[in-house]
Design a protein around this nucleic acid. Structure first.
Lengths: 298, 298
DNA sequence: ATAATCCATATATTTTCTTGACGAGTCGCG
DNA sequence: CGCGACTCGTCAAGAAAATATATGGATTAT
């Protein structure tokens, strides 16, 4: 925010609304403010006029259209203008995570997304996990893995998003190691108890790796430079630093481990130069963890 | 919201904040409210006490911890409790689309996501597209496709999200057909002019198809039922209705067009039963569009 | 015992907003 | 053309909300 003038929060919010509507929709009515904030007509009038005093020339009343029109040289002073945020709001509405009344859109622009396929997360589950992370607790859960469903104690230390679904990274008390648990696969939440697991022992989590990506070498130069531009690459490289535990989600999501004979370069677009290095790092971390485990229970 | 009592909006927002913090963080201080809304200490005291009058037993002051603690049978009355929304906020903060001060988190829970790789969208670009959709305009853009970069006029009619990136669906004046344009690939925005394109002619957009998904048949029964549960399938099927123009993004994202010999069923998880049908539909729509095009300029 | 840190509360005052009434400009319609 | 419908703006009185300032209680840590 650009050095917000001394305006009390409630009013600043209304100014922000004015600017948001002005910027994204190009127009604004007094009634919009009345409806959004439940204030009276004179108050809304005052707000608009004070705003125009504060930011002269940003919006102009057009008496023939009976509405305030955003001027061409509009400069926001109260609202943070971010396209990503607006698009995020739109997605959230379409996916049901947000109600349109929670946003400042009067109605949605014509939009379509591919249908979301992930199940939504149970609030109680997330709440319990957050509490367990905060207070260092073990939670009894009924977890459905790909092979079976059973009760177990887990001591979560972090949330993780794999590009698709939400997980908790947790100590699995029954297995004696750290693993990912998909939140939507937790069928039931049981009791809690203090945990002795130490998050700093989760080497796969604390170890960072850097994915070194380039435009797929089998593409021609024009395609390559388009892709480099697409991903904002510097010197033709994109370096992504991520936790080892998450690296393989990224790799699979981008199909980086599939051979060119299997998937066309145009589709794959990116190529991971250091897959071997990352695989080696995983091997190393896994064996270090196993050694430690063996040492603990001889 | 559960029949919000007659509380004026500004106060309702503070109550909502109280409940949000109480639910997700389990605790709340008077100071939190003062800081969040910039109100005075006595006012914050009044708010809390009025809230406890309104919702008896939801939060309880714990004098030894010097904080309000959420009770076990907490029942929200003002805040909408949604795990998806909270997770969305976390993701938005991590990706930079939201500032933490825009949310009600005092600080983030330990979280990691795979690094986002898509470039952010330019606000001016999105704003112009929204205006063009609204007012039925053609916009001159410098667009970088995979093969070249050039200026062209496009008349957008909808936004679209492919699971990865944002597009506009638009009439391409130079090509005489409707296409997708990735927002982040629009390098420059030029002038606008009225458009004669009719969005209802965009058959690939208006035609709906249903993806008929099942758990991959090569998996064993336990795995199948886990996946059916994962995606909330009824009778072992998941039907996704989507626009034909978006169907192939979904198909590629889930690798539904890759053969089992190429990608392991455990990884693919889902199987599309009616790929042929969808391909046929696309052929039909494409040839219908071509015929129409030929008829228009003989 | 003392300081610090939460909380609650009381009073007077200031600021903000509402209520209700009225007037003016523009558009479209009969 | 005149009318209603719709937007805007404004005035004045009074209600409501929030503030400043001050006092006091409970608990914990030093």
């Amino acid at each position: 925010m650009t050095a917000t003038p001394n305006v009390r929060p409630a009013l600043a919010r209304r100014y922000e609304f004015i600017e948001w509507r002005a910027y994204w929709l190009g127009r604004l009515n007094r009634k919009d403010i009345e409806d959004e904030f439940g204030i009276s007509t004179p108050q809304a009038s005052i707000d608009i006029n004070k705003y125009m005093e504060e930011c002269p020339g940003n919006i102009i009343y057009n008496s023939s259209e009976k509405t305030y029109i955003t001027s061409d040289d509009f400069t926001p002073k109260f609202a943070k203008i971010s396209a990503d945020r607006v698009l995020l709001h739109i997605r959230s509405i379409l996916s049901g995570a947000l109600d349109i009344t929670d946003t400042w859109f009067p109605d949605l622009p014509p939009t379509a997304t591919i249908p979301p396929i992930t199940r939504s997360v149970d609030p109680t589950c997330l709440r319990t996990m957050l509490a367990a992370i905060r207070d260092n607790l073990e939670v009894e859960v009924e977890y459905q893995s790909l092979t079976n469903t059973r009760r177990r104690y887990i001591a979560p230390h972090s949330l993780a998003f794999d590009g698709h679904r939400w997980h908790v990274r947790a100590w699995a008390a029954d297995k004696g190691d750290f693993r990912d648990f998909v939140l939507a696969r937790i069928r039931e939440i049981g009791g809690t108890r203090p945990s002795k697991a130490r998050p700093e022992d989760d080497l796969e989590w604390s170890t960072m790796v850097t994915l070194d990506l380039v435009a797929h070498p089998d593409l021609d130069d024009a395609q390559k430079s388009a892709i480099e531009c697409d991903f904002g690459m510097k010197d033709g490289r994109l370096r992504l630093e991520t936790r080892l535990a998450l690296a393989f989600y990224q790799i699979k999501r981008l199909n980086l481990d599939l051979d060119s004979s299997v998937i066309r370069p145009e589709r794959k677009q990116l190529y991971l130069t250091n897959l071997n290095e990352i695989n080696a790092k995983r091997e190393a971390v896994c064996s270090a963890t196993k050694e430690r485990k063996a040492a603990q229970m001889p």
